[in-house]
Amino acid sequence: MDLALLVSAAIAGAIVVLTPGPAVIAFIGIGAARGRWAGAQFLFGHLLGDTLWCSLALVALVGANLVSPWLFHGLALACGLYLLWLGTKAVLVRKRPDGGTSADVDRPYVRGLLFGVSNPKSYPVTLAVFTAILAGQLGGFGWSEAPIFLLACLIGFVLADFILIWLVGTGPLRRFYSSHEIWIIRATGVMFIGFALNTLWHLARDLSLIA
């Protein structure tokens, strides 16, 4: 496989991870509140979702007829409902007597894993980035090249994850979060609900449930 295509795949993977959205917002909240290690656990759990959506975007570019549109409809419904649940919890967050909040995450890896496979931003952004950066280079692409292509994307994911892990541990960010934690969590919840409603609205429109 052409080296330029692999480098482009890694760059595309990094852009997907660094693009602001629900996962980046959730990561900043966890990492700023609990430190770099907790943030790293969230991102490493999220890698499964990154790989899943990357694979689906690749299928859409190279062999769209291999996947039923009902798979994407089902994923959109699950994504929307999960984000709606997370957003509602965040909006209703309360301080605990020990100084923590009811939104504290006890298992960042598991939260990242769930978030990764149910992030409604991931598929359209991944597909858009791949189309913009890679579509012109995929003319001779075959399925035998898919594993090494996905590996290059994974390298891009991991490099971008380390950039975010460094960023979330910086003093100014952690001090700002500590000073405004409860309102940042609630604002994040409002954004999550917005993402969820947008996802469910587009799903309803695709299914012709609304005009």
Rank of each mutant, 00 (worst) to 15 (best):
1 M>H: 00
2 D>S: 10
2 D>Q: 10
4 A>K: 03
4 A>N: 14
5 L>T: 11
6 L>G: 01
7 V>Y: 07
7 V>A: 14
8 S>E: 14
8 S>L: 15
10 A>V: 14
10 A>M: 13
10 A>P: 15
10 A>Y: 12
11 I>M: 05
12 A>E: 02
13 G>M: 08
14 A>L: 02
14 A>K: 00
16 V>H: 05
18 L>T: 04
22 P>A: 09
26 A>E: 08
27 F>C: 14
28 I>N: 03
29 G>V: 02
30 I>H: 02
33 A>D: 11
34 R>D: 14
34 R>Y: 12
35 G>N: 10
42 F>D: 00
43 L>I: 06
46 H>M: 09
48 L>M: 13
52 L>W: 11
54 C>K: 00
54 C>N: 04
55 S>F: 13
55 S>H: 08
55 S>G: 14
56 L>R: 09
57 A>W: 00
58 L>H: 06
62 V>L: 10
63 G>L: 08
68 S>V: 12
69 P>M: 06
74 G>I: 11
74 G>H: 10
75 L>A: 08
77 L>P: 09
77 L>E: 07
80 G>N: 00
80 G>V: 01
80 G>A: 02
82 Y>P: 01
84 L>T: 03
86 L>S: 04
87 G>W: 05
89 K>D: 06
91 V>C: 11
91 V>M: 12
92 L>G: 09
93 V>F: 03
94 R>H: 08
97 P>D: 11
100 G>F: 03
101 T>F: 10
102 S>H: 05
103 A>T: 05
106 D>F: 11
107 R>Q: 12
107 R>G: 01
108 P>A: 04
108 P>N: 01
113 L>H: 02
115 F>L: 03
117 V>Q: 00
118 S>A: 09
119 N>K: 01
119 N>D: 10
120 P>C: 00
122 S>G: 15
122 S>P: 07
123 Y>L: 09
124 P>I: 01
124 P>W: 01
124 P>C: 01
126 T>Y: 02
128 A>D: 04
129 V>P: 05
132 A>C: 15
133 I>F: 10
134 L>T: 06
136 G>N: 10
136 G>H: 09
137 Q>G: 13
138 L>A: 05
139 G>N: 08
139 G>L: 07
140 G>V: 08
143 W>K: 09
143 W>P: 11
149 F>E: 04
150 L>T: 05
152 A>M: 00
152 A>C: 03
156 G>S: 15
157 F>R: 02
158 V>D: 10
160 A>N: 06
160 A>L: 09
160 A>R: 06
161 D>F: 12
161 D>Q: 13
163 I>T: 14
164 L>P: 01
165 I>Q: 04
167 L>M: 12
168 V>I: 10
169 G>A: 14
170 T>F: 07
174 R>M: 15
176 F>L: 15
177 Y>K: 08
178 S>D: 11
178 S>C: 02
178 S>I: 00
179 S>Q: 14
180 H>V: 14
182 I>S: 11
182 I>K: 06
183 W>Q: 13
183 W>A: 12
184 I>R: 01
188 T>S: 13
188 T>P: 00
190 V>R: 05
192 F>P: 00
192 F>N: 05
192 F>Y: 11
193 I>C: 09
197 L>W: 06
197 L>R: 04
197 L>M: 12
199 T>E: 03
202 H>M: 15
203 L>V: 08
207 L>Y: 09
208 S>A: 09
209 L>C: 09
211 A>E: 15
